[in-house]
Design a protein around this nucleic acid. Structure first.
Length: 582
DNA sequence: GCCGTTTTCGGCCCGACTGTTTTCAGTCG
């Protein structure tokens, strides 16, 4: 029986929740499965291992029943209840619940009354106008289902998420323009963009204004939009030329804190927050906080007031994911981390030049890094077996080391380090020999080939690289690309344990398309005592500006400056490398 | 199905919108 990963267990629990929902279970039971799936997905250790030891109940939202079901899954490969329900409901039924406007209740009605068990069967029923006669449906419902089916067939039925840098490239200028408008008072980007998630579905902007209608009109007239759906004193709603939906909400100043808190989310954070509030007789919404004791609704001009009113310490937006932040904030807030700030990174340990697939010279990269206030920069072109740009064969690397030393002597104000991003071969070996690696100041090992190896082999391959005495850090550890490519199959718990054991650092690659380690893994790695490095992987001078996405991932991982190695001056960081500690 | 400085049983976030209904269920965020 191959080991189940946390994400596989989480997917099984999600599916079981969906099946119970179709089966008509009370919603709280369904929600319990979804909460459990979230807890499993975000757990910092192997849930399969926990379940086998009978300890999965240590995770929030997992009790005796779910412990038993997870144990059955990891021991036998299946959950009996899921097998039974799968036999009861055809897989096409779940596809129907995914259509816009249709949920489990209505899908079940279609199945029970008309035998509709697939999208094709649903389409046929719509064509023959049989759906309109069902209780709770009508002609309008048929029209909406027809549109949802067409949207699904055209491929735009699914959720389209935009990687954060593209979304901010749209959202930040909108906020700047609105702030500059004479009608505006306060303007803030809210939503998941404010929490710096990897990608977003839409943008939410929250504002106060002394002339709301004028601000909404100014918003509607920005050249950014292909279409403005609505505009009035309460706000406006529009879609950009690139298809991103942007909502502007304008609110009275005394309610600004409530609205900003609500629309910053996350949904999970807000649900847990409201649940905590209810226990104190308080009811939180975007409009205020209703107190059962007085029957009055209090409004808040700032978010800090909202949290204070609930007896909570202020929680930074990046932490609002219901990953334990509320419990810590309720306990006085001393357990909330002092998060890393962008200006605290002193160096960058991963960039490329024309020696491999970068687009400019060592000198130009050095000047760009210095301009951004960095004290040191490692030049880490790809190693010999890479197909990117010019291969850096061993002799070429020797010349590159010389070039770095010369540039370092010529350029004041920044220390240049000779490094390499060395490929980890499928068998775990590196493609330079140790004599050459030992001449480098900094060695990053990365996987760039054979992504589809089985998990056990990939894990062994990466662990072998971590055990190499001259590997200082592992680059983009899971190989994922945000919204484009899932991580390769690898046991990250084992990788993190190996990094901790060997004293190898793990990278948060700041490229917004990577952000790898992700927030969950970075938090687990830091908790295991692994030093984190945040690198831009810059291929061009302007790429150094992506550092903020790496900082954001670190903040979402609860990291402070002491856990991020490149907040230290180079002499201190140099001494942290395992080769210096032997 | 989970959980408890109200509770081991009886709760479980809140509001908007839609379309179908004669007062509300289902879906969505």
């Amino acid at each position: 029986m191959p080991e189940f990963s946390n994400s596989q267990i989480a997917a099984a629990l999600e599916e079981l929740g969906d099946l119970y929902e179709l089966d008509g279970a009370i919603i709280h039971r369904v929600v319990a499965y979804r909460n459990a799936a979230k807890a499993v997905r975000e757990a910092s250790t192997s849930v399969a291992g926990l379940a086998r030891a009978g300890r999965a109940t240590e995770l929030p939202g997992i009790g005796a029943t779910l412990q038993e079901k997870i144990q059955a899954l990891v021991d036998t490969g299946q959950i009996p209840a899921a097998e039974k329900l799968r036999a009861k409901f055809p897989p096409g039924l779940v596809a129907i619940t995914r259509l816009a406007g249709l949920g489990p209740k209505r899908a079940r009605m279609l199945y029970d009354e008309l035998g509709i068990d697939s999208l094709d069967a649903l389409r046929a029923a719509i064509e023959s106008e049989r759906v309109r006669d069902l209780r709770g449906f009508g002609v309008k419902a048929e029209e909406n289902i027809r549109a949802a089916l067409e949207a699904a067939a055209a491929g735009d039925g699914g959720e389209v998420r935009v990687v954060l840098d593209r979304a901010l490239a749209i959202g930040e200028p909108i906020v700047a323009a609105l702030r500059a408008d004479p009608a505006a008072d306060r303007v803030e980007l809210a939503g998941s963009a404010r929490r710096w998630t990897d990608s977003v579905k839409d943008l939410d902007v929250i504002a106060t204004a002394h002339d709301p209608a004028a601000l909404a009109a100014a918003f509607a007239e920005l050249g950014t939009f292909e279409r403005v759906h609505s505009s009035g004193p309460a706000g406006a709603r529009a879609t950009t030329h690139s298809g991103l939906r942007v909502d502007l909400r304008i609110v009275a100043p005394e309610q600004f804190g409530n609205l900003l808190q609500h629309f910053t989310g996350s949904k999970q954070h807000n649900m847990a927050l409201r649940d905590m509030a209810v226990r104190k007789g308080l009811h939180v919404s975007e409009y205020g906080v209703l107190d059962d004791a007085t029957g009055e609704t209090r409004t808040c001009a700032t978010e800090a007031d909202v949290y204070a009113l609930l007896g909570l310490a202020y929680i930074e937006p990046e932490l609002r994911e219901d990953r334990g932040e509320l419990e810590v904030a309720a306990d006085g807030g001393a357990g909330l981390p002092r998060l890393l700030e962008p200006g605290e990174l002193r160096g960058d340990l991963h960039c490329h030049t024309i020696a491999s697939d970068g687009r400019t010279t060592i000198e130009k990269m050095a000047l760009a890094a210095r301009e951004r206030g960095l004290e040191y920069l490692a030049i880490t072109d790809h190693s010999a077996t890479m197909g990117f740009g010019n291969d850096v064969a061993p002799d070429e690397l020797r010349r590159q080391i010389e070039r770095v030393r010369e540039a370092n002597a010529a350029i004041e104000g920044i220390e240049l380090l000779a490094g390499s991003e060395v490929n980890v071969l499928p068998d775990g070996r590196l493609d330079y020999d140790d004599e050459l690696l030992a001449q480098l100041d900094w060695v990053i090992a990365s996987v760039h080939t054979s992504f589809r190896m089985p998990a056990a082999e990939m894990t062994a391959r990466i662990v072998a690289a971590l055990e190499h005495p001259l590997v200082d850090a592992l680059g983009h550890p899971t190989g994922r690309k945000v919204e484009r490519r899932p991580p390769y199959a690898v046991d990250m718990e084992e990788v993190i344990a190996a990094a901790a054991r060997t004293g190898t650092m793990l990278e948060i690659n700041a490229n917004p398309d990577r952000r790898d380690l992700d927030d969950v893994h970075a938090r687990a790695a830091a908790a295991a005592g692994v030093p984190i490095v945040i690198d831009t992987d810059a291929h061009w001078p302007a790429n150094f500006d992506v550092a903020r996405y790496g900082v954001a991932t670190a903040r979402r991982a609860w990291l402070g400056p002491e856990q991020v190695a490149n907040t230290r001056p180079w002499p201190e960081l140099r001494a942290l490398r395992k080769r210096a500690r032997r």
